[in-house]
Design a protein around this nucleic acid. Structure first.
Lengths: 139, 139
DNA sequence: CTTTTATAGTTGTATGTACAATCAATAGAA
DNA sequence: TTCTATTGATTGTACATACAACTATAAAAG
């Protein structure tokens, strides 16, 4: 009776596309034994110095606790170090972490090509613009 | 040096918007003590008879195992029953499950209004269309 | 018919993520 | 200067989800 078209439901369609995109991304970075989030975190850490967890959380739109978890992994893997300074923490790439950067960059550009293959050039562009609007934050 | 704009990275922007949308949706359905996925599953079950888990998985773009997990919860909550028939299972709404439907429908329409408030009317429409393309499936 | 292959569903396990609570440190007010 | 409120980071916990392995059944091939 109700005839709901679930394909039209934002909840599922956004979940679905998110999983598609995540999978493409993971396939890339898993080649380095990294999850996508960990990989992007490393790239962000290369872009500046004296970065703290909160800044990472802001930049990558993640909860601080989520950032903590990934930093644990990256530290354990030897790609970063944490320097505690009072209640602040500074995150720094190790030499291993720096050495990874060129490969990360290559993968990132491969990734963007791959997105275009799947989504189409126009679709990829459209999606990018749409998703990057500054939506009202939910509390 | 690298100057990556992470806001432009599909991996994070699609995750971000997915979380926004999921949160709006969850806020609605949690009023009935249901997760969004469980709620949509119930609505789908009302739309036809003799539905099996695989069909649910197809319709909602979820893995069969994920469907199993939610059916466990819904069964435990008394909203559905499972009838095993050889290797096939038929899922049926209980009376309680049926009784829930009007409220689910109301919430769904509230939800759609809420999306528009957050995303803007145009944005919501655009997003809907974009996300509903039939992307090549990843294997 | 019997044997092989494919399919439906479930279970084990792992991952990414958030939220709430907590701890420690700083900053502001008294 | 001491007390209080705020803030940065972490930990405990919970959830949605997938994938791989497994079980049982059905279908196809011989």
């Amino acid at each position: 009776m109700s005839e709901i078209n679930f394909a039209e439901c934002l909840y599922f369609s956004s979940g679905r596309i998110n999983r598609i995109i995540a999978k493409i991304s993971d396939q890339q970075f898993n080649q380095l034994g990294l999850s996508s989030t960990a990989a992007f975190m490393l790239m962000y850490l290369d872009s500046d110095t004296d970065i703290n967890p909160s800044a990472i959380a802001d930049e990558l739109s993640l909860d601080r606790s989520t950032v903590t978890r990934f930093l644990d992994k990256l530290e354990h893997a030897g790609y970063i170090t944490r320097t505690v300074n009072g209640r602040n923490v500074t995150v720094t790439l190790t030499d291993d972490g720096k050495a990874l950067q060129p490969r990360l960059m290559t993968m990132w550009s491969d990734l963007n090509e791959h997105y275009q293959t799947i989504l189409g050039k126009a679709g990829e562009q459209q999606l990018r613009e749409l998703l990057n609007q500054d939506f009202e934050t939910i509390r």
